[in-house]
Structures are given as C-alpha cells and as structure tokens.
Design a binder for these strands. Sequence first.
DNA 1: TGACAAACGGAACCTTGGTTCCGTATAGTG
DNA 2: CACTATACGGAACCAAGGTTCCGTTTGTCA
Lengths: 193, 193
Amino acid sequence: MAGSTEAEPRPMRADARRNRQRILDAAAATFAAEGIGVPVDVVAERAGVGIGTLYRHFPTKEALFEAIVVDRIDSMLARATAPNEGDDAAEHFFSFLTTMASEVSTKHDLTDALAQAGFDLKARCAEKFDQLRAAIDTLRQRAVDQGSVRGDVGTDEVLSLVVGVCVGSGKSGAACPAERLVGVVCDGLRVRS
Amino acid sequence: MAGSTEAEPRPMRADARRNRQRILDAAAATFAAEGIGVPVDVVAERAGVGIGTLYRHFPTKEALFEAIVVDRIDSMLARATAPNEGDDAAEHFFSFLTTMASEVSTKHDLTDALAQAGFDLKARCAEKFDQLRAAIDTLRQRAVDQGSVRGDVGTDEVLSLVVGVCVGSGKSGAACPAERLVGVVCDGLRVRS
DNA sequence: TGACAAACGGAACCTTGGTTCCGTATAGTG
DNA sequence: CACTATACGGAACCAAGGTTCCGTTTGTCA
C-alpha cells in the first residue's frame, strides 16, 4: 500500500555495479568474436566472476544477449539518423549500408542475432529493430526520390541483402570482405544509366 | 592375406536396402524442411525405423547429412555443366545463379550446410564443392569474356553473395524470395552500360 | 524347414550447456 | 566495530540430443 510508486528502492551496491559492467564487457567481446554459441560459463570466467553472479545480473542467457544487441542496434540507429554531411543521397545511403555491413560482419553476435533462427530476439528487440528499419527506409527513400536508386527494391529486401551478404562473407569459404560484397549489391541497387 | 582384394564381400539384405532408402528419403525431406537442427530420432521415426537402424546405416548424424548434401551438390553440378541452350553467356550464368538460389533457399539443409558453421561438411564435401565452384567459374568466365559481366568479382565472391542472399532471404524478417534478391545481385554483376 | 548371420528396435548412456540453490563473503551503515 | 542486506561463487540439477549396446527378429540359404 504505502509507497506503491516504486521510486527506485535501492541504489545497488558498488561491487555489483562493477561486476555487471565487467560481465557486459566480456560478453560483448566474446559474443562478437565467437558468436552466440559460446557457453555462459566461458563469459563468466572471462569476466572474472562466477556463474551465479552472471545469472544474478542477467536472469537468462538471452537477456544478456539482448542487452548487448540492443546496444549495438542503438549505435547503428544513431549512425542512420545522423545528418547527411555530404549532399548525394544515394552515396549517403550506400555508405551507411557499407558501414552497417562492416559492423555486422565484425560483430559475430549481430550476424547470428539477425540471421540465425532459434533465438527470438526479434520479438524482444522488435522496437529497436523497427526503428532501425524506419531510419534506413528514410535514407533509401531519399535516394530513390533523387532518382539514383531503384525504387522497386524495398527496405526489407535491402536489409535481407545486407544481412545475407554478411553471413555469406563470414562463413562460406575463404575471406570475402563484406564491404566488397555490399559494393556489388549497391551497384545492383543503382538505377541503370 | 587371402582375398585381401576386398571384392564386395556381401550383397546386403533386401530389407536393409529398403530401410536405408527410407531413411535417406525421410532425412532429405526433414532436413530440407527444417534444417540441420532436427534430432535424429525424429528422422528415424518419420522413416519408420528405430534409431539403432538409422545408426547402423549412417554411423553418425553428419554422415547421414553428408550423404544428402553430396547428392544435392551433385544435382547442381549437373545443371551447371549442362550445355548452354541459348546463346547469351551472361543470361546463362545469371539463370544458373537464380536456379541455384531457389534450390538452396528451398532446401533448408543446404542453407545450413553452406552458411552455418559448426558442421565441417566443407571438409568432407570438399571435392564436390570444388567441382561445383569450378563449373560455376567456367560459366562466369564465359560471361566475362563476352563482356557483359564484370571481371573484378571472383567466383568465390559470387558464391558468397548467392549463399548469403539465400540465408538472408529465409530468416531475416518477412518473406523475400531469394530469386528476387539474386536478381539485384546479378544486376550488380552486370557491366555498367 | 532349420540354422545362422545380418538387421532391427529402442532403452540406456554420455556429454554439453543452461539454470537453480545455498552457504559464504562483503559493502554499507549506525 | 558489529550487524544485516546484498552479492558472490560454484557445485548440483535438469533437459536435449547424439551414440552405443544388446536382446530379439527376420531374411537367406542349404
């Protein structure tokens, strides 16, 4: 009854805050390098904490994962909505896609999160993801309006292309830098001259 | 010492042959529809045999998988080396890529096999895979020589693009038919007019 | 038709990886 | 400095899925 407004009951102990951060850092690095597959105990070990501690902060592996991915998407979102410094809308659009590709193909966890089934992050990060899609759509639309990018390929398709390319880049055979592959895709998106 | 030439000791019992085929069929269908993730007992059940039987024919899940994938690659290989009926090398090349895309994106197991890490089918199917790559390279080279396809994108890159696109098609968000995405890629491969 | 090797079925086993539980250690406070 | 709520560590637990084992069944051949 009393104080039902729940105004931040307790501040959180110092070591707890520190550990939480350590876990987050270790997880980000580990998942980025090796993908979702890495067992949680490995993350805990690298963070220098016990598994119990990890689970105290993140009730589930997926929760930990979510915390990281949301962050990643946020930073992409920021980049997508940044003001266009140059003038060419198409180049701006393509440049964003390229940056996104190198981001995604560098962070293995993102690749997994976006491409791999089995995790329904999609459900949890839906908001963020939709925002990102919307932002990209704006970029694309501008480029289309300007007349240099074909209008018959939607944002969802563009996303599929970029994400797919990142996956294809990382795994299949030898090294093909994602940026290069995205270059081909972008050329495919240009209006034929 | 005696008879060390190993000239096919025994013919294999009738029911065994039948069961082997059933397993192969069930596995092909199941893996195609649901990917590598499906547990072996499910396959056994759908084939109408016990797990023991399945393991008698295929000593390991990977072996079973390999049997199927090799077959799939073979059929793609056949298509890749089929004589060019039309005349336009570029169209022939693109048409093959499109067919390959629809094949791969339809057969979930192929997607998994080609894109997903964790299975080293690559090691086992290396031969077949190399043959396929070589065949595709021939198609590509012809198209390049003809002057309608850019020469600065290698076969490995093309493969990464196509495979990536298939993965991106299946998973990320709503349905984007792989063929359509490959279309964009092909446009990106055309020499700018 | 009887005998035997080959094949079958599926319970049991093992490993891997996520999650829980609880006794111990410690930051924060009077 | 003592006391308590908070946090910690990691052993133990549980589920999933691949693989093995062995008693039973069944083709095949004389």
